[in-house]
Design a binder for these strands. Structure first.
Length: 275
DNA sequence: TCCTATGTTGTATG
DNA sequence: ACATACAACATAGG
């Protein structure tokens, strides 16, 4: 599930343990340790005090005493929570989902802290990854501001040469160097609000359409951050609520939504609203 | 059984 | 060289 707002929200779940010390690390070997050995992660973190939990784009960073950093990318199915919250960590859970606790067999990293908090990284498909370093890592220092941030370089993004290429605009929105944190559903959501079909070639957009797309990305990011995990849900008239279901209908016009693969990803759009 | 899945990367293709 | 397309990763659920 993790895109910008969810990653931010997940990273804050671990804030319950800020100030406490890591007394035990459970890190069973798995694909998420393809950059670091589980032993190295356990060695680096044991005895360290958790100081801060942060997120940039789709990456979460945890800072520990001794200037030790833990980086987690949540991939496709990664989630973060503390053990006591295990049963209700679904950000947009329907009734049925809320009651179903994730299987502990997919816990990839567990940090037991001195105050009793157990911080869990859970990831069935293991597309996520874990990194540790001493000192601020490059992947963190070089991460630019996300589209919800006032410092997001909107003018530079609008002028980027990618808009002269013929990649589908959907593929452009998924570029993390330009739109950090935007993933499949947020890209579709922004295109819906901008009135542009995901398969349109980037170079075929008018200047006004490009501006509308960029403004929509910013608006979707801000609204998602304001609602996800804060007791709210994305607005009822968003595509978000209908895009996963067969037979989903356009929230604005009621016409059937279209689903097709664009840029290698399943995309959902309303033919009545998007041109 | 077959298909799909909120992500990224390395490789293939033109 | 360049831009774009796509398979691969691994698992669960419909």
């Amino acid at each position: 599930m993790p895109e910008l707002a969810e990653v931010f929200w997940f990273s804050r779940r671990w804030a319950a343990g800020v100030g406490a010390t890591v007394v035990a690390v459970t890190a069973p070997a798995s694909r998420v340790y393809r950059h670091e050995s589980p032993e190295a992660v356990a060695r680096a973190l044991t005895g360290r005090r958790l100081l801060a939990c942060e997120a940039r784009g789709k990456r979460a960073a945890f800072r520990f005493s001794g200037d030790v950093w833990l980086g987690i990318h949540l991939g496709m199915t990664g989630r973060l929570f503390v053990e006591s919250e295990r049963a209700r960590f679904f950000p947009f859970a329907s009734e049925g989902e809320a009651a179903r606790a994730p299987d502990p067999k997919h816990d990839r990293l567990r940090l037991t802290l001195s105050d009793g908090t157990v911080a869990v990284y859970h990831d069935p498909r293991m597309f996520g990854e874990v990194r540790v370093s001493v000192g601020e890592p490059d992947w963190w220092a070089q991460a630019g501001p996300d589209p919800a941030d006032a410092r997001w370089p909107e003018a530079a993004v609008a002028a980027h040469r990618v808009w002269r290429g013929k990649s589908p605009v959907k593929a452009v929105l998924l570029r993390q160097d330009l739109f950090p944190g935007v993933g499949n559903w947020m890209a579709d959501e922004a295109l819906f609000h901008a009135g542009v079909r995901p398969g349109r070639a980037a170079c075929a957009l008018t200047a006004a359409e490009r501006a509308a797309v960029i403004a929509a990305v910013r608006a979707v990011c801000r609204e998602a951050l304001a609602t996800v995990g804060r007791g709210g849900e994305p607005p009822a008239d968003w595509l978000f609520h209908r895009r996963w279901r067969d037979g989903g209908r356009c929230p604005r016009t009621g016409v059937p939504l279209v689903r097709e693969t664009v840029g290698g990803r399943t995309s959902c759009w309303s033919p009545a609203v998007q041109r």
